[in-house]
């Protein structure tokens, strides 16, 4: 009887032990991630969330209001444009620079200098990047001056202040700020490709572009897909760069989901609707994250 009891006790201890080891992490995740998330989801179903001590249940009202708002759809489109263009160009520029830095044809000293130069944008915070590009692209800034001297433009372009160019300008600034992540990751990947593959290709008479298409890119594909997905998730949530350069304007031409949500919360003080908008962003990010996790598992 006593032995039975002891054995049950032992089994229980064994069953509980893993959870005890995990409990600090679970508590931290619960407090820092789940609790805020659940709270925000709760706010999105309340009227006058945060602002009233006794908020009433609102159902899906705030979601309906957001889906009926044309500015939301415009900001969704701008977010997609901003994100897709950023990821594609981050990847392209990152690949070009990584290939350049991995090439034996470039002098090692020059390569080291380029390595430092190319990685520079990564060292700046979003605020610094925004200020740099505001100064460069202002109507009397360096970019206009150079373009006018080269005869490429006839008059000053208001890059951030014109509805026609603002979204392209902020996307450009974000591309400049984000390519080093791809460059560094791809460079690490390139250095891991066995040289034998290229030697065999040389013996077969393969040309440079053929080696790129049939050896380099397939070998780098796992890195490209992983980093692209992560970059997509991160870029979708970019806020400071857009806020500081354009504030979502002119008019609504650079309004993205993050600035749209911020304005709802801190300009309109409509925290319930802001919470609903945040939940929509969360769902989109969640979809991408699940896709990423599935891809990682499949590998």
């Amino acid at each position: 009887m006593n032995r039975q009891k002891r054995s049950r006790h032992h089994r229980l201890k064994r069953a509980v032990a893993p959870y005890l080891y995990l409990s600090p992490s679970l508590v931290i995740i619960g407090l820092l991630m789940l609790l805020p998330m659940v709270t925000v989801i709760g706010y999105s179903f309340q009227n006058s969330a945060v602002l009233r001590r006794d908020p009433s249940f609102a159902g899906l009202k705030h979601y309906q209001a957001i889906f009926a708002d044309p500015v939301f759809w415009a900001s969704l489109w701008h977010t997609l444009y901003f994100t897709c263009m950023s990821v594609v160009f981050h990847m392209t520029i990152g690949m070009i620079f990584a290939l350049m830095l991995n090439s034996d044809r470039i002098n090692p000293t020059l390569r080291n200098i380029l390595r430092v130069l190319y990685i520079l944008p990564w060292l700046f915070t979003a605020v610094i990047i925004a200020v740099i590009w505001r100064l460069l692209l202002e109507p009397n800034g360096v970019v206009n001056s150079i373009l006018m001297q080269l005869g490429l433009i006839g008059s000053k372009i208001e890059w951030f202040s014109s509805p026609e160019t603002a979204l392209h300008a902020v996307t450009f600034a974000n591309i400049w700020a984000g390519y080093p992540l791809f460059m560094v990751s791809l460079l690490a990947g390139l250095q891991g490709i066995p040289k034998d593959f290229y030697e065999a290709a040389d013996i077969d008479g393969a040309k440079a572009y053929q080696k790129l298409i049939f050896i380099t890119i397939p070998q780098l594909m796992p890195i490209i897909i992983s980093i692209s997905l992560l970059d997509f998730i991160w870029t979708m949530q970019v806020f400071p760069l857009i806020w500081i350069t354009t504030g979502g304007g002119p008019i609504y031409s650079t309004e993205v989901l993050s600035t749209y949500t911020y304005k709802l919360a801190f300009s309109s003080y409509n925290l319930s609707q802001a919470a609903a908008s945040a939940v929509i962003i969360l769902l989109i990010s969640l979809g991408l994250t699940l896709f990423y996790i599935r891809y990682q598992k499949a590998r």
Binding site: E138, S161, S162, T246
Partner: peptide, 20 residues
Amino acid sequence: SPGIATKTEQEKVEEFVNDR
């Protein structure tokens, strides 16, 4: 002065300070 749609108060003062 151009750049109206993205100009902040701080930049306004800077332009005045710099005789622009």
